[in-house]
């Protein structure tokens, strides 16, 4: 498993990711395994994130949508 924290492009349907594009490669979402959220620094530049742990065509990845847009968090490779 590797931690990346890189911006990614995500195509959504009904607010749920269906395709992820990272470094020019496409990941088709097969199943969302779990979602969770976090909210930090309410006293300053608040950071609200929604995480998605997903089974994709290229394996399991974890992404999140936050203040800085969509980010790739972790990849199980």
């Amino acid at each position: 498993m590797h931690l990346y924290l890189e911006p990614i492009d995500v195509h959504t349907q009904q607010e749920l990711p269906i395709t992820v594009c990272w470094r020019g490669r496409l990941f088709d979402v097969e199943r969302i395994l779990e979602t969770w959220s976090s909210r930090h620094a309410w006293w300053g530049r608040e950071d609200i994130r929604t995480y998605y742990l997903m089974m994709t065509s290229r394996g399991v990845i974890e992404i999140y949508s936050g203040t800085d847009g969509w980010m790739l968090s972790r990849v199980w490779d």
Partner: peptide, 8 residues
């Protein structure tokens, strides 16, 4: 509570 593992 929307924490990791809550679904399981």
């Amino acid at each position: 509570q929307q924490r990791p593992g809550d679904h399981r």
